[in-house]
Design a protein around this nucleic acid. Structure first.
Lengths: 183, 183
DNA sequence: CGTTATTATGCAACTAATTGCATAAACCGT
DNA sequence: ACGGTTTATGCAATTAGTTGCATAATAACG
């Protein structure tokens, strides 16, 4: 399981409160590991109980009041262990591809509009990634950490590029098919 | 949720027993919607209780004995409804990208070997897809259902192509970095 | 000041998915 | 007929993830 390690990574990059983490999971980190604020609060509790993180000493906690966490040495060790350990890739699940397959047996009615919508979403995401690349990774020699983060962003860009291309083709294909199918 | 719809699709393509479904989820359908046999048996029970599928009349059931299902009209209707309804894409989770990001803060030790392993897995999957394409989709004009299934396979091929290319780059990049990082 | 909106934290219930195990029949060699 | 392997179905417990709601502090508005 990876959520605790995602949180450890985020906290090592910068100590944060639950809500700050939630916001970062809506941007950068969340682009390849999403999480809701409830997951995050729950996991912060566990990580603290396990002695991998702690509340920043300066803060005094009270319900509904900001509480920032930082990673303890044990947390860094655990993250390094997890990062270097080999892991089997989890199986994918893609509802859109499944729907296309279903459309092959029950007809394509209503599909095209949603394909277009997905295309738009992926185009928007791609534009956002390219914006980030232009802003955060100008050309030139860089340190290890920057090169690795750039590599991750490249994966995002290339994935979105693939989806936009595939969806354009899918929209065109579905548009020229007889709508009904064997419904 | 999509597992019931994946099963309905599979059963419409061909009525099957739980184990036959499990096998098909290890191949074709499972390439974009994986499921274990326990999930499948559980879901078959629910679908039957809901009146969307039924046991083939010819078979008489007994524990440990084959039991094939077919889709009822209500099931086909539900699948058509789901297929045409618009859905928001679920957020991705990719542990490998997360690990790269973690490596940017705790060092790349041990990563390269696993990147190579993933590369090999994706190369193998790509080869398998291309084999299927050659076998099942020879060039030429085809019916709606065949074109849609081919479109789905193309997504698989293009995705694996992306991953093999990206991983080759990642392996090369990581190989030439100083191993330690800020561990 | 008092009321409303926003920020921030968190619990509880539910749904989905995974893991490990149990059972039973069929098939296969000896 | 027996013991071992494979095929097939299924239960139970656990873990992971989602959804809906509750609470408290703070800011902002008149």
């Amino acid at each position: 399981m990876s959520l605790p390690h995602a949180i450890l990574t985020a906290l090592l990059e910068k100590p944060s409160s639950g809500l700050e983490l939630t916001r970062r999971f809506d941007r950068s980190i969340g682009y390849f590991w999403s999480a809701t604020h409830q997951q995050i609060y729950r996991e912060l509790g566990k990580l603290e109980a396990d002695g991998l993180i702690r509340v920043l000493p300066s803060e005094q906690p009270a319900r509904g009041q900001k509480k920032s966490y930082e990673v303890l040495p044990a947390g860094r060790t655990e993250l390094a262990r997890w990062t270097s350990a080999s892991q089997d890739p989890k199986p994918h699940r893609d509802a859109l591809l499944l729907r296309l397959r279903a459309a092959a047996v029950v007809g394509t009615a209503g599909l095209e509009a949603d394909l277009r919508r997905h295309l738009e979403l992926h185009e928007r995401q791609l534009a956002e990634y390219e914006e980030i690349e232009k802003r955060d990774f100008p050309p030139g020699r860089d340190g290890t950490d920057v090169r690795l983060r750039h590599l991750v962003l490249r994966a995002g860009i290339d994935l979105e590029t693939f989806w936009t291309q595939w969806l354009r083709r899918a929209v065109a294909d579905v548009a020229e098919l007889p709508d009904g199918g064997p419904t």
